[in-house]
């Protein structure tokens, strides 16, 4: 077992940890945190795939590395949107919970 496989298993573990946190933590902020954990675990797996594809003097397969960069930025924008939504929910309603779902009806005139 070489070092790269360590990181691969680390990525797998991070995905599991993040999924656990998503299910169990009630605070939306921590769900967002767990989502980031899962995302970074997935990207780490991609990095492992890249490293395994090292060839011709390059340290790793550049395609997955490039896709990881794109992915990190996309994950950040998702986090920013989720946080903005959460803060706005808190400002508008005084509570920051995802459950129980408030019964949503179209407003009455």
């Amino acid at each position: 077992m070489n070092a790269v496989t360590f990181y691969g298993l680390c990525g797998a573990a991070l995905v599991g940890l993040g999924l656990y946190g998503l299910i169990v933590n009630p605070q939306p902020l921590r769900k967002i945190l767990s989502f980031n954990l899962v995302g970074s675990g997935v990207f780490l797996l991609f990095g492992v795939v890249a490293r395994r594809g090292a060839a011709l003097g390059m340290g790793g397969d550049p395609v997955p590395q490039a896709l990881v960069i794109t992915g990190i930025v996309v994950a950040f924008s998702a986090t920013a949107l989720a946080v903005a939504l959460l803060l706005r929910l808190y400002d508008a309603s005084g509570s920051a919970s995802l459950a129980p779902p408030q019964p949503v009806k179209p407003p009455e005139a």
Binding site: L22, P28, K31, I32, F35, A78, L81, A82, L85, L86, R88, L89, A92, S93, L98, P101, Q102, V104
Partner: peptide
Amino acid sequence: LQAALRYLV
């Protein structure tokens, strides 16, 4: 807002 947050996550 809450519905949107649940959808997003």
